[in-house]
Design a protein around this nucleic acid. Structure first.
Lengths: 109, 109
DNA sequence: GAATTGCATCGGATAAATCCGATAGATGCA
DNA sequence: TGCATCTATCGGATTTATCCGATGCAATTC
């Protein structure tokens, strides 16, 4: 993952609506949710939410799939993994001392 | 980590200057860097960078320490770990199937 | 005590994000 | 074909972020 891609993902997640949308979609893996369901969950207007969703899709965090008139949205676990690796890379790169406590808690699940 | 805290961290990292500052500080653990050194590395004016640094500090990602006239800045690995756990939590919580590929790459380092 | 250094904060200009209603396009149904 | 549904995009108003120079404050130095 390059810096620009990481910045896109961080920017996409740095908004209450987009972060909760992303988390909601993670919880609904692998079925996904339709855009309409996400609009309803967001409580925002349809047009406003559509703009937010476009940010998530452009960042690669969410992948849409056409199903009739609807768009089914799913998260990209790969994108999430990429971001986490990017954030952890600096300390992992030759810094096992920093990385160890980070991984210790992650492997607990 | 609560949603608000995660949002603060994501917002703090969702800016080129702040992200590169954070990564630079990770690389300089555990000695840290002075604010002046960070200003120089950023290429921005001193006042502008000070505002960015305040965002990182407020989010808990960077912890300042007075040393004479200077402020030594260090990252909080705890905050980074907190964010990563927050992002991974949704899939880890009862979703070992999603979490496994995420951890597989992380443990490689 | 006066001058210097290091950093934070203020004031203000510019750019970007956010929100909505209205509209357009594309798909499915009667 | 005509109509309803689902989603994206446009236009525009409001808020927020970003940037800088100037100033203020605290700690060191002479």
């Amino acid at each position: 993952m390059q810096t620009d891609a990481a910045l896109s993902i961080l920017t996409a997640l740095a908004h209450p609506t987009r972060l909760s949308t992303f988390r909601l979609l993670v919880q609904h893996e692998p079925d996904g949710l339709s855009t309409g369901q996400l609009v309803e969950a967001s409580g925002l207007s349809q047009s406003t939410f559509s703009t937010h969703l476009a940010v998530l899709v452009k960042a690669g965090l969410v992948v849409p799939e056409k199903r009739g008139r609807q768009q089914i949205q799913r998260v990209s676990i790969d994108a999430l993994r990429g971001l986490i690796l990017f954030l952890a890379k600096d300390c992992c790169g030759g810094r096992a001392d920093l990385c160890e406590p980070l991984l210790a808690e992650l492997t607990c699940c």
